[in-house]
Simulated assay, not measured.
Amino acid sequence: MIHHTMQQENSTQPYVHGRSEKEAERLLDQAGTLTTILHHDTYYPPGSRVLEAGCGVGAQTVILGNHSPGALITSVEISPDSIRKARDTIRPLEMNTINLINGDIFDLPFKNASFDHIFVCFVLEHLRDPLAALQKLRNLLQPGGTITVIEGDHGSTFFHPDSVDAQETIRCLVRLQAEGGGDACIGRRLYPLLKNAGFSDVHVTDRMVYVDASRPDLVEGFTKKTFIAMIEGAKEEALAKGMITETNWERGIIDLNRTTESDGTFSYTFFKATGLNIIQL
């Protein structure tokens, strides 16, 4: 694996979830839990050049490597700490066709048309200008190349028993991300974003995660370790900014955990978009 350091530009908001070891663990749990739902149709042919834009700690990179073992994958991440964690994650797996690069997706060291495919997962929600990012990435695609984008949408969260306090805690995270220039509900925007960036044949599919007691793996892996853990990570900042009282916050977290009991249910929708680069720029 190659490690290349680039000057980072101020193109992203501060990562709202933080970059702690606990957050890295959450991302890995999330990726493992959602592999079938999000990636059953993610595959790149042997020898194809794939750019993963925003690889984080390597959680999705591992899945790409497993699903497309013959593809030549270049994974880029702006955070040096995250790229180090990604290297630690991937090194024991001996995925020798993966290169890790520390760099800014708004200023990458690649010539136009350098890649056959681009993969972007849980990245656009953190960018101040996701449309500009997609336009930059499109320049790096060969004519006929494809892009795949996966994002969540916090506004798609529904659960039983319903709770005003639980919904308020979720809105705190949405507001924190918006204040930093991001969009926690960006999943619903993928179709117009890709169309406006110049991609053709844009197709979006919804990937709903539905959880009840008959799916204990999802109760543990998604509702508890992915979603609730993500919301809990926003507590300190939400309280510091006066978005919610500590009493209401604690009630909200208790009610979110209530959905994981035997009569509770939880659902959340991700969106997966694909597009084609027809015109060479």
Results as ranks from 00 to 15, higher is better:
D88T: 11
T89A: 14
G198R: 04
A59I: 00
L127Q: 07
G221T: 03
H17V: 07
I118L: 15
G187W: 08
H117G: 00
G187S: 09
D201H: 14
I186M: 09
T223N: 13
G18W: 11
G54N: 11
G152W: 05
D116M: 00
G221K: 08
N99H: 15
G54W: 09
S200L: 02
R189M: 09
L137G: 04
Q30E: 12
F266H: 09
L137T: 07
P143G: 07
V16A: 13
D104C: 06
L134W: 02
C172P: 03
H117S: 14
V57F: 01
E23G: 06
V174C: 13
I101T: 04
T36F: 13
I170R: 10
M230K: 10
D81C: 10
E23K: 02
I83P: 08
T36P: 01
L127P: 00
F227I: 03
N277T: 04
C185E: 11
L137R: 08
L134Q: 02
L100N: 10
R175L: 13
A238I: 12
N112L: 06
F270C: 01
S214W: 01
S20M: 03
P45G: 00
P45M: 04
L218Q: 05
F199A: 03
S20H: 04
R207W: 02
L218I: 00
I118Y: 12
R87I: 11
Q8E: 10
L194S: 00
L124F: 05
I90Y: 05
F222P: 06
P161N: 04
P192A: 12
I228T: 15
L28S: 12
N96C: 01
E179I: 13
A132C: 08
N102G: 01
L124R: 08
V123E: 08
N102Y: 01
I2R: 14
L127A: 04
G47N: 06
T274V: 12
V76G: 05
P80D: 11
E21R: 14
G47R: 07
V149P: 06
A229V: 02
L173C: 09
A24H: 12
L173T: 13
C55L: 05
G70H: 04
S262P: 00
D29G: 12
A113S: 13
T205E: 15
G221C: 02
G275Q: 03
H160Y: 15
I253Y: 10
